[in-house]
Design a protein around this nucleic acid. Structure first.
Length: 288
DNA sequence: CGATTAACCTGGAAGC
DNA sequence: TGCTTCCAGGTTAATC
């Protein structure tokens, strides 16, 4: 589910509980999420302090005092919730206070932090998310981060660099922008929204952008992500930040999930079509 | 090498 | 009500 704004919202929600906290206990309900958890996962976390909570693209990561970094990806349906102190547990069975979906609570991390004791629970019905441990020193070269494109808000991400990374690409803009090697953090929603803001068709060949179009696209990517972060992300279904608050950017979608509704710029109906097996939404009248 | 498709997994909504 | 089909915010191995 979550794209950059949602992951950033989660990061900000978890930070007060995790940053500076010591990990007391890690409970695993199953040995794998999308992939097997790394060997001795719980043991390598237990006793560690969290130095900082960061984000790279759609990845969340916690830098630990042990020299390792806990890498987390929420996949399509992953979410974190924070609850108070651990409650009673029956043998062989998990139950977390306040959980509305214990069947998909896969990992629970008990911490003592600046806010006192807390339990951070990872819930993920579809289990497309995953966690891993990597050496902090080589994090940027780790299998998850190597080859990832620039952060949208980094200085290194410019209209010129965007145009350069798209040069030679024959794929449509939609597919190219979903490629995390071009720019990190965009997913289906924000690609659709950024293309609408820049007046470009998702079907446009990525390698054939003018300098002016690349400039508009670059600005649109930053502005839509910025607006979405400010809104606390988008809450499709029931996505919530770690403090339980719902993001509200979904109410500001210009095209995503607005098939048949009028384009906010020209009034023509928003169209939905499939690209690479996924829905694209666009105004075919004013997005060229 | 780049582009496209299928698969991973589950639940909710829509259709009959 | 119950069954079937489609769809979903991501990533990636396999295939073209």
């Amino acid at each position: 589910m979550p794209e950059l704004p949602e992951v950033e919202t989660v990061r900000r929600g978890l930070q007060p509980f995790l940053s500076g906290a010591r990990i007391r206990k890690v409970d695993l309900r199953r040995p794998d999420l999308r992939f097997p958890l790394p060997p001795d996962f719980a043991r390598r976390l237990t006793g560690a302090s969290v130095d900082a909570l960061g984000r790279r693209g759609k990845y969340l990561f916690a830098t630990l005092s042990t020299g390792e970094t806990l890498i987390m990806h929420l996949g399509m349906s992953g979410r974190f919730t924070v609850t108070g102190a651990a409650v009673r547990r029956q043998p062989g069975e998990f139950h977390f206070a306040g959980s509305t979906d214990p069947a998909h609570d896969h990992v629970a991390i008990d911490v003592t932090g600046p806010q006192g004791p807390a339990r951070v629970t990872y819930n993920d019905p579809r289990r497309f998310g995953f966690m891993d441990l990597e050496d902090t020193m080589t994090l940027d070269r780790s299998r998850h981060f190597a080859g990832m494109g620039p952060e949208p808000f980094d200085e290194g991400f410019t209209a010129a660099s965007l145009k350069a990374s798209l040069t030679g690409r024959k794929a449509p803009l939609k597919a190219a922008l979903l490629d995390q090697a071009v720019v990190a953090g965009l997913g289906n929603i924000y690609v659709c929204e950024a293309l609408w803001r820049s007046g470009l068709s998702p079907r446009r060949q990525a390698g054939r952008l003018s300098v002016a179009s690349a400039g508009r696209l670059h600005a649109a990517i930053r502005s839509v992500l910025e607006d979405a972060i400010e809104a606390g992300g988008s809450s499709l279904r029931d996505f919530a930040s770690a403090d339980g608050a719902l993001g509200y950017f979904q109410h500001r979608f210009s095209v995503y999930d607005r098939e048949g509704e009028p384009c906010l710029r020209c009034g023509a109906p928003v169209r939905r079509f499939t690209q690479g097996g996924r829905s694209s939404f666009a105004c075919t009248k004013c997005q060229k």
